[in-house]
Design a protein around this nucleic acid. Structure first.
Lengths: 348, 348
DNA sequence: TTCTGCGAGGCAACCGGTTGCACGACAATC
DNA sequence: GATTGTCGTGCAACCGGTTGCCTCGCAGAA
């Protein structure tokens, strides 16, 4: 039932040459006479022969695969990145293994272990692993980090700090004196970076900053955090990412607080584009470039010209849409009453 | 610099046994004396030995990998499915190759070719390939289709027709007499299925149906289609998927048409949950189950107890949220004027 | 004519596992 | 005590490539 591909031996005997000659026809045609190459390739073509990558991997110790591990495939930040990485890898003739760590270091560790044997190198996105573990893994295979800053490794970072700084400045200019940061997963490097940027920029503009903590980034959690956000007395919020921001938008709507006239909201990562209502002011993202750079860096590392300490930083900027405005009348903390009907049937 | 894993030979010599004995200690411990097994495993453990999957794949002709190909990783329908598939595969000890075909049959074909040698089996999601090609690929490797109905193959289908039928009934009950179907990619099996279900159900309820065609499913295209949708004179629209529906919502807002009081909108796939504004009435999706079933089916096919003709259908239902209501005053076609400011700065 | 150099291509080992078969030891059977 | 069977293990071939080294033949130089 299952059809098997032609092997190198079949091509060899068909072409009347040794297996090594067939191999060389593909890998080092310059070491063979042009006629031989042509004849071998013709036979190979006729037989539909393609070198078996598994055998190649075993014999060379190098496969044409890379591993890509993300904390949560379903978080909208990652799919475009995954897609771009896969594309770029394909350009180099590589296939990609995808792993979802579910934000759990142990699972991430396991995935890396599983992949290690089968891949030439790895890309870890927003890794939740400790530095020591990352270094350990990097001893086995070339490894590139995205959004995780471990010294003396290959890493490419989105400096959302730049955009966040602009965001705070924007709010300050509009007249906001007290803002709230809705923080994301504490293990996330991006979260630490954004939080720090908010604090610093707020200080520079003489703006007070409160913080509300969302352990995970989902619409629901963002929505639920609206109460706490309003409770801080701030007139604007900057969320760790767009998902939380969008949830917050819904939560504020529930509370009868209108955006942006009464309260301003800024997201991060521009993952939802202008699809929210109102269209969300946010910090741009560079996830496609980041993925492409990471793949390229990894390919370099696989070749000879690999550097060992690269810190590639991509800047971001504020994208102003329609969720920010000058602070309106202050929202009394008790405006945090539910308004309007239920949110509709959730699916079972 | 790069550390290599222990091999079977090292374990063998360290344990004072033949390589075959080490191999058997892992694969068929029942053929060995318990003491030998224990000793070998102890040594293996001490050396950190793990069988090299590449060598295993070469020697057995079976790898513990599967390939998963989707038309567009970034379309929100797929990430949860991808994630679920990866999880489930991991439960069986399998790793997954991910491919993005960009909706292009040629690319999909290429990806399958690339994967074939390295995987035990394949899962094609919403394949854009022609039947003949799919059959050809299936001759090489066990193959499971998701949302593509090719006779005599392993396939698991989401019957969104069921939910769509409910949706049309729902609109009819509310009093709508003329609805519009915003169709998706013509190559999509799901689109054909939904379109047919809309037509049939509309006929049964004596409802007129117009169609507007969106070649691809994105927010922007949905938004742009609002004009055409209003132009049909319908009082409600059913979109191929949530993305188009959400875009349509934005387009209607642009046109000053309020949802649901003036116009009703229903999506499909429940991919956005209650995150839209207003929360979108839609047809439920089963993408997680579908992924798990597909993986399980594939695993069965890899084992001996593989069936060759399975058609697993999962039903769906209507999820009523807040974008449907009884038809209000009819919307004059020329109400299709732009209203309100620009959508804000798009990122560059 | 003999020697040297070089290019083309074959031989065989190797990558790290798996597996059919054979062999030796020991127990059970006649 | 010889025969048969069973169990545990080793030997060696094999999966399908790659690659270092050797040989062979031919051209050019001495």
């Amino acid at each position: 039932m299952i059809k098997r591909r032609a092997t190198i031996s079949q091509v060899a005997s068909e072409a009347g040459v040794a297996r090594s000659t067939v191999s060389r026809a593909f890998t080092r045609p310059d070491r063979l006479s042009p006629e031989t190459v042509e004849r071998v390739l013709a036979v190979a073509d006729r037989l539909g022969y393609q070198p078996n990558p598994v055998a190649q991997a075993l014999s060379t110790g190098q496969s044409k695969n890379i591993g890509l591990i993300v904390p949560d495939v379903a978080n909208p930040f990652f799919p475009p990145l995954i897609r771009a990485a896969q594309r770029k890898a394909e350009d180099f003739g590589y296939c990609v293994f995808l792993g979802d760590s579910d934000e759990k270091p142990e699972r991430e560790d396991q995935l890396v272990d599983r992949f290690t044997h089968q891949v030439a190198g790895l890309i870890l996105v927003s890794s939740r692993l400790a530095e020591a573990q990352i270094r350990e893994h990097a001893r086995r295979r070339p490894l590139v980090l995205i959004n995780q800053d471990v010294p003396e490794m290959l890493r490419v970072l989105i400096n959302s700090g730049a955009g966040v700084t602009q965001a705070v400045a924007h709010l300050a200019e509009l007249g906001h004196r007290h803002i709230c940061y809705v923080s994301g997963p504490t293990t996330s490097w991006a979260n630490r970076q954004r939080r720090a940027a908010v604090k610093l920029a707020a200080k520079q503009h003489g703006v007070t900053v409160s913080a509300v903590s969302a352990h995970k980034s989902t619409h629901e959690i963002g929505r639920a955090s609206a109460q706490a956000v309003l409770g801080t007395g701030a007139s604007a919020a900057l969320a760790f990412d767009d998902l939380l921001a969008q949830g917050l938008l819904a939560g504020l709507r529930d509370a009868g607080v209108s955006v942006p006239s009464e309260f301003s909201v800024i997201g991060c990562d521009d993952v939802l584009g202008a699809t929210t209502y109102p269209p969300l002011t946010t910090v741009s993202n560079r996830c496609i470039e980041v993925a492409e750079i990471a793949v390229t860096l990894l390919m370099d590392a696989l070749g000879s010209r690999g550097s060992t300490d690269v810190r590639h930083v991509l800047d971001t900027h504020l994208v102003i849409r329609e969720t920010t405005a000058a602070p309106g009348r202050p929202v009394p903390a008790k405006a945090a009453r539910r308004k309007g009907g239920a949110a509709g049937n959730e699916q079972p």
